[in-house]
Structure formats: structure tokens, C-alpha cells
Design a binder for these strands. Structure first.
Lengths: 194, 194
DNA sequence: TGTACATCAGTGAACGCGCGTTCACTGATGTAC
DNA sequence: TGTACATCAGTGAACGCGCGTTCACTGATGTAC
């Protein structure tokens, strides 16, 4: 363990440059969007020479691909968490999206990264699988694709509108807002039945 | 009317440069995204000197602001078209979004343009008004905000996912897909009641 | 119908900037023996 | 425990590029009289 004396602000080796680049890139994306990301700027922010990032990401596309992959894997895990009903799965989607805006923005802007990357494809496939499996489980008598798409679209719409600051006037908790919107539809249904 | 002789590819004055810049920018946005737009490139594509665009748009933000304004005005008009039920309004939203992907991408990326521009705010207000008015009209016994947000979120989600090529496996007509998804929810409701 | 003139919409050269990428290099670390 | 050496992860200078912006200019158009 090197002593970090007053003379040396940081050691020759960063130690965690790859992870730091991802985190800093996500910060920039959340604040200014993916187009504001530059490898030189990230290096500057991390106090490292501008050529250092190339040892971890060959180019900008590789950086965005890593972010998208991480996002799809994390989203897949979120969708597999224990759920009591289909709404829970939808709320997990909104919770992940609003909690990881940087990942989501990259994931749904495929021109930024290698969409055809096998790992990406596999992670995305597992997300779809989690979604449609949940739809089939909670609505065994319906078409799981139809139910799955309806839930995905609704929750994706809420998350996207919320991230775009279109729902500011409806509170600051996107998950509760999603619950309110979705349960409104459910209540309406019950009203029609009773 | 100037004769366009073989020697002169185009006259000194373009004639419609402002409109052409908007159209060409929209083309670029649809193909490569807003970050691919550069004023010099647009000028190049239109066979005009790279300083010409500044006579019509002071900077890139002004160009994107004009696109967003046009989009909100066109969307507002689309949402006011005659509708037989709330689904019609939703389908108009999906129809406009899928038919004008460039506009939509800019509109929902506020960092690109002057969100606080008074004309923009007014046009956006009129879109919201059209939405919630329709919700109140077709569901007079429900909370129009709840119904309006549910419809908006669902249709925005479908449009966004479709534009992001996430729904390729479900056909090539986003409006019919939206109808199928939304009517599935309706059928489920009727099934619960019967 | 003709002329003078203001205004509009272009041109093309020049500038400074940040970017991605390449390169030879060097310091630090891990492993074989 | 010590030494040699391969490998990894940095440095910093250099390059060419496209960009936005500014500037003095010029060609075309519209209007007053």
C-alpha cells in the first residue's frame, strides 16, 4: 500500500481506471447527454493522460458498449427480483430506469454502441425473457406477448417521459407515479365490472 | 423565373435555404441522430457555402429550436383531429411519432434546444391541453389526468420502443401494433367483467 | 419606364479549438527459476 | 530471498481533421421616386 504523501497527488497507476471511466462517463451522460462524452475529457476529469483510456477502451464505441452491457445485465437482474404481481415487475423497470438514467439513455440509443455484440444480445434476450415470463406467470389466460408489450410500453413510456422532465408537475417519485397511473387503469377496470 | 442553363448548377440565391436546412437536418437526425448534425455539413449537402446557414439560424440551438417548435405544432394538430374514442387520439400520437421521427427525437431531448422559448412552451401547452381534453371527453367519470397520463405513457412507450427498433419482430406498422396492444388491454378488461 | 439605393442572402478566407489516434517511451507489477 | 524478464498501465508530444464563428466582400432583389 503506497503512502499518499503530500507531494504525490496520485500514484503512477490509477488502479481502477476502467471502472472510473465508466462511472465518470455515466455522470457526464446524466448531466449533458451521451454526445457530451469525450475520451479526452474523461481522462482530464480523472487526472490521467488523455492516452490512458485507450488501454481499457479501444474507442468511444467500446466504452458505450460496456455501459449498455452493464445496463442490460442490471435491468435483467431487476426484472427477476421477487414480485407479487405484474405491476411489481413494471415498477422494477421504472425504478431501474430512473435510478440509472445514464445506462438507460445509452441502451436505447443503439447508434452509440455495438448492438450486435453477442454479450449485448444475450443480456437483452434475458431481459425480454424475464418480461414475457412474468407476463405469462401472472396472466396465464392471456397472450403473454400482448400483456408483456403493454406493460413494457406503459412503464417504458413513464420512465422515458419522467427522465425527459415531462412529468415534473406530477411529483418527484417516478415509481409512485407509475403505481398511481397503472392502478388507475386497474380501478377503472374494476369500476366497469361492478 | 431564371432559366437553369447547363452551365449554372444553381442560382446565387438558394431561394428556400431555411426550409431546406430544416429538411436536411431532419434527414440527418433520422439516419444518424441529432449529434450527427453540423451546420457545415448541412451547408455542404445543400451545395451552399458553410457560412450561409447563419443568415437563417444564428447557431445550432436555433435550428433545433425551430425543429422542436414545428414538431409540437404538428403534434398538437394531429391530436386535435376528429376522434371516435380515446384510442384514436393515442393512435394519432403513434402515427405522428413514427411518421416524424426526427421531430420527435429532438422534441424529447430538451438539452438540444431552448426549452423555455415562449413559442415552444405555448405549443407544448396546447399538446397537453389536447390530450387531457380528450381524456376528459371520452372518460367523463374518471380523473382526466390519470387517464391522460396512462394513454400518453402507453403510446409514447410504444412509439419510442418502435423508433428504437425494439419492436421489429412485431411487424412494420406501429399504428396497428399500438391498436393491438391497447385493444388487448380492453379485451382483458371486458373478460374480467364478464 | 428608369434610376438610386437599402436590404437581403449569399461567398470564401481565416482563426482558434477540442477531438481521436498514433507513437516511442517509462514506471510498476507479477512470475519463473 | 534475489534476480531477470515479460507484461501491464501509464506519459506526453505530435498529427490531421472538422467544427463553429467572424469578417469584409458581393450578387440579387425590392422599393421610392
Amino acid at each position: 500500500v503506497p503512502k499518499n504523501g503530500s507531494g504525490a497527488p496520485h500514484p503512477y497507476h490509477h488502479g481502477n481506471l476502467r471502472r472510473s471511466l465508466l462511472d465518470e462517463a455515466l455522470r457526464v451522460i446524466e448531466e449533458e447527454g451521451p454526445s457530451a462524452v469525450s475520451l479526452r475529457d474523461l481522462a482530464r476529469r480523472l487526472g490521467v493522460s488523455h492516452a490512458a483510456p485507450t488501454h481499457h477502451f479501444a474507442d468511444k464505441t467500446a466504452l458505450f458498449t460496456a455501459i449498455a452491457l452493464e445496463g442490460y445485465e442490471q435491468l435483467g437482474a431487476a426484472l427477476r427480483e421477487p414480485a407479487e404481481d405484474f405491476l411489481d415487475v413494471g415498477l422494477a423497470y421504472v425504478r431501474y430506469s430512473s435510478g440509472h438514467p445514464g445506462h438507460i439513455r445509452v441502451m436505447f440509443q443503439p447508434s452509440l454502441y455495438q448492438v450486435a455484440d453477442p454479450e449485448i444480445e444475450e443480456a437483452r434476450r434475458r431481459c425480454h425473457e424475464a418480461l414475457f415470463t412474468a407476463a405469462a406467470r401472472f396472466y396465464p389466460n392471456d397472450d403473454p406477448q400482448r400483456i408483456g408489450l403493454a406493460g413494457w410500453s406503459l412503464m417504458h413510456g413513464i420512465a422515458t417521459l419522467w427522465l425527459g422532465r415531462n412529468l415534473d408537475e406530477f411529483g418527484d417519485d417516478p415509481v409512485e407515479l407509475a403505481r398511481w397511473i397503472a392502478q388507475g387503469a386497474l380501478a377503472r377496470r374494476a369500476g366497469a365490472a361492478g
